[in-house]
């Protein structure tokens, strides 16, 4: 631990002047967001396994300890319940913790602290002990990782009262959604699509305001069918839309972004236009978030729907080894089949 100490949590510094938009990878955009958070919010602290000296196994926290000191960016012992439980205490002491769980599967040992403590402390204390914690979780598959390094936990977290869940799909979204989440007085599970860490995109800094950060966003407009996705599946759905366009099918891609709260109105608005919906996710089918999406769409668009909401998802199996990953994660063909089914559906 360095000699650096934080004078008093709670003050907010001025935001740096917005720079011209630049090409950054998602990993760089997240790193920039964390740097801007630490620079503007003296109560913000980054903690986790290897986040300090190493800069994180994905280098998302690269250079932050050197710039902000070992008091504000610190390595913890290798214990996820400890990291999250400690974050609760830091929040009670007035800090805004930004813990990292190194890989999605490592969140399981911390579920007790996430569900029973982080999700409930505001409630238990009748709003007197809020939990402004943003938990960063490198999430989903696609990198040929070992077991326990490629899980899709959004439905688990979205089911927990008191938590909010968000997943960015692009570097731009990653920067802004992380800034937004870190400024919230409630806990946010921030699911970073690890297969997209190294993909570049244009990133504008500064703040875009709550309207830009809340709800879903139309990633590509279309009029025949809505593909609903989040995280890494958004880019895949955009590829699918490109291919479908060659056959004259205009696919709308809706990037949900927030998995809790779900943007019911955004979903309904899109499906009212296209009258068909396919939801795509990496997580297993049964009790996955696709079921919730299908229910929301059906409740709001029952009369307009031309076909039942289709789900193209992972299977009800443990996340497979890297060699089978491409068989498990929804691929272009399976998504196209899903689109075909809703287009060809006829009322019986």
């Amino acid at each position: 631990m360095s000699e650096t100490t934080i004078a008093a949590p709670g003050r907010t510094g001025a935001d740096p002047e917005p720079a011209a938009p630049r090409q950054l990878s998602m990993q760089q955009a997240l790193n920039l967001a964390l740097a801007d958070i630490l620079a503007t919010d003296p109560a913000a602290v980054v903690l986790g396994e290897d986040v300090g000296t190493l800069g994180g196994v994905f280098r998302v926290t690269d250079g932050l300890q050197g710039r902000f000191g070992a008091a504000r960016v610190f390595d913890t012992p290798l214990a996820e319940s400890g990291i999250l439980g400690m974050s609760v205490g830091l929040a009670m002491a007035g800090f805004h913790p930004l813990p990292e769980v190194q890989f999605d599967g490592f969140a399981y040992p911390a579920v007790n602290q996430i569900v029973c403590q982080i999700g409930r402390m505001n409630y238990r204390s009748r709003g007197t002990l809020p939990m402004p914690i943003t938990l960063r979780v490198p999430s989903f598959g696609g990198i040929r990782a070992p077991e326990h390094h490629g899980e899709s936990l959004e439905a688990l977290f979205a089911h927990v009262p008191g938590l909010k869940v968000v997943s960015p799909s692009t570097p731009e979204e990653a920067y802004h959604l992380l800034r937004y989440a870190a400024a919230r007085p409630d806990p946010v599970i921030f699911m970073e699509p690890k297969s997209r860490y190294w993909q570049k995109g244009e990133v504008s800094t500064g703040r875009r305001g709550a309207d830009g950060d809340l709800g879903s966003r139309v990633a590509r407009p279309g009029k025949h069918v809505t593909l609903i996705a989040w995280g890494a599946m958004v880019a895949r759905c955009l590829q699918v839309a490109e291919l479908a366009a060659e056959d004259g099918i205009e696919v709308e891609v809706l990037d949900l972004r927030w998995l809790k709260p779900l943007d019911a109105e955004g979903l309904a608005a899109s499906v009212r236009r296209t009258r068909r919906a396919v939801v795509v996710h990496e997580a297993p089918l049964t009790s996955g978030l696709g079921a919730e999406v299908a229910a929301l769409v059906t409740e709001r668009c029952f009369d307009t729907l031309r076909a039942p909401v289709e789900r193209v998802t992972g299977f009800d199996v443990p996340y497979p080894s890297g060699d089978l990953e491409d068989e498990y994660i929804p691929n272009i063909d399976r998504i196209l089949f899903g689109i075909q089914r809703v287009l060809e559906y006829r009322r019986g």
Partner: peptide
């Protein structure tokens, strides 16, 4: 449940 919270709160005193 709260033993880790005490440690986090305590470390917050050091930081502050």
């Amino acid at each position: 449940g709260s033993v880790l919270h005490a440690v986090g709160w305590a470390h917050g005193q050091t930081l502050a």
